[in-house]
Amino acid sequence: MSSDLINLTLRVWRQNDPDSQGQFESYQLNGVSTHMSFLEMLDVLNEQLIESGQESVAFDHDCREGICGTCSLMINGQAHGPDKATTTCQLHMRRFNDGDTVTIEPWRATGFPVVKDLVVDRGAFDRIISAGGYVSVNTGNAPDGNAIPIAGTTQEVAMDAAACIGCGACVAACKNASAMLFVSAKVSQLAILPQGQQERSERVVSMVSQMDDEGFGSCTNTSECEAACPAEISVSNIARLNREYLRASLCGRD
């Protein structure tokens, strides 16, 4: 396969630390192979920056195969770039044209403060999970795996929700910076499975409360999160969360 080379102008958000103002910097990057992944393109940029004595652009990344949820980036105004069901690390430069200007920004949300450049702090998601996103079963307490049958179709629906990679694209893409898709994915998974039934009410109440405390916005049902989600989590999970919350509030104990 012949390698096509393109030239790009990158507008990258640079911000030294959480408290500083931050601004866009423009970089010209020539001879970018279209076979590169987007992050490899940033690697090349960073090599060039370091060689010219400038500090590299900080960005989060790890597995580079779309499962760890570490990479982020708003690329030309879209979370994880233009492709559906794709993380930034899976996005390839063949998606861009010679001469393009590419604007790269960090996730922007009060709940995700910028750490440096394109890196944000997503600790809020961990705190939401620790508020109730689990089944309280100590190691060693488990009955046999087949003790409770779960219909294959039920398991599939739970798995659809469980596939969330926790990247935060839903928050980033939502005009309200709402975290409902993330929270609802975990609430749904555990509400669907029999193992999650015991703590069903407490779970949804605590997780929503933590979500609000973290400063995320409210859901206005625009479904932009679903479109941006690389794991294709459905907004039907948000409806389920609402149902669960109503149920907990109407029927739950004080």
Partner: peptide, 14 residues
């Protein structure tokens, strides 16, 4: 057993 109890959605038969 432990993972099933935690809500890990292992593949299931019909």
């Amino acid at each position: 057993d432990q993972c099933v109890a935690q809500g890990v959605p292992f593949a299931r038969e019909y």
